[in-house]
Nucleic acid binder design. Structure first.
Lengths: 214, 214
DNA sequence: GCCCGTAGCTTACCAGCGGTAGGTTACTTG
DNA sequence: CAAGTAACCTACCGCTGGTAAGCTACGGGC
């Protein structure tokens, strides 16, 4: 098994036993790593437990199932994402700047969590209803944020939901593309989306006249 | 096991033994169904084999592994998708109509394959490099098509690749949204994307003047 | 200091699934 | 009808998700 030759060696204050909340955080961190490395299917609960330095039933004690562990990881990342994006949206006062700042925050978050985030997002769909629902909630969270921001400025009858869906989807793909082309900064990515989307939105919102091309 | 009480009952000309190509097609059809119903992880090779009316090793004989079977399903759907979208793009003569017709064809395809397509696409990422690569090839195929179409009309220095990524990603999300809101027709979905994206593109391409908002 | 309740943790196990070895049956071709 | 081969099967293995049941160290009360 794992080698624990000297209990007092290495980090001195390293406790073998630790409170549940701490252990849970540690488990989620390791799980995120392992899921990212191996992929969800290939990742084994034994390996995760092993790397944490704990036995498998502890994982099940705290997270119920492999899917539950994945869901917990996603939920954590989701909270962080909401934090940074909604924070970025409150400071500016024009809708254009709100969207731009939100996009920059989004692409920055993706860039920082590159390895794990893309995997987590991809993997979830495969697992089952609960994990799929969780990853869908991440998008729902983003679309809601965009949709509600737009609703502040768009006329009432404009259905903002599908528009937000297109934006979120476009950003996801672009983020994956940016991973392959690492020289693209979050700011550049955000600017591209602004170029593409914003003036499209401007054409939809009656305030700003459409270019009337045909 | 499965019940085969009377070999000549039911469909009279139903052969127990059939040539490999036919059997493979049948297996892929059943697999697509089962993957869509249960999800990739939950779907078992035993069940697929059972529904086909054949034993499990046959699946491995023909597809090598569970992942191989999934890859085969995706590859088949990919070929069909390329067929309908590229066909739709050749008839029109203006770039706007090319994109619109391509979008309509895309959303129509998604609508028809609703159950299986969304799952196949979601599931692939989780499996492993080969299936992930395969599903990425589907998108590459779409982005290439869009990108090359755009390149016919856009000026040389415009990098069409990331733009195509955003379009493909936006359409994917919108397609999933349309599944939840079934009253949206493929034509309406395509029109929304046109409204959103096209005039954004118009702002980028020097030919068509941007709305000049600020 | 000592007792003891409980949170943290473990060993040992099961069922089911992906995957395989090796043999059997039914078509085809001469 | 012989016989070669493609289609097919039974029976099995190892690994992984998941669980039962019991052990142990920490902390509070006396």
């Amino acid at each position: 098994m794992r080698s624990l030759p000297d209990p007092t060696n290495g980090e001195p204050t390293r406790k073998r036993r630790m409170p549940r909340a701490d252990r849970e955080r540690q488990m989620m961190a390791v799980a995120e790593q392992v899921f990212a490395e191996r992929g969800y299917v290939a990742a084994s609960m034994d390996e995760i437990a092993d790397r944490v330095g704990v036995s498998k039933p502890m994982l099940y004690e705290y997270f119920g199932s492999k899917e539950g562990l994945l869901v917990a990881c996603i939920r954590l990342a989701r909270a962080e994402l909401l934090q940074v994006t909604s924070d970025a949206c409150v400071r500016p006062d024009t809708p254009e700047q709100m969207l731009r700042q939100g996009l920059i925050a989004y692409f920055r978050f993706i860039t920082e969590h590159q390895k794990s985030w893309a995997l987590l997002r991809s993997e979830a769909a495969v697992v089952g209803p609960s994990a799929a629902g969780e990853i869908e909630a991440v998008r729902q969270q983003q679309t809601d944020l965009i949709s509600s921001t737009m609703a502040l400025y768009a006329p009432a009858p404009l259905d903002t939901a599908p528009v937000a869906e297109v934006i979120v989807g476009g950003c996801e793909r672009l983020a994956l593309w940016c991973e392959r082309n690492q020289d693209v900064t979050p700011e550049q990515a955000a600017e591209l989306v602004m170029q593409l989307i914003w003036f499209g939105i401007a054409a939809v919102v009656p305030d700003t006249p459409s270019p009337g091309r045909g």
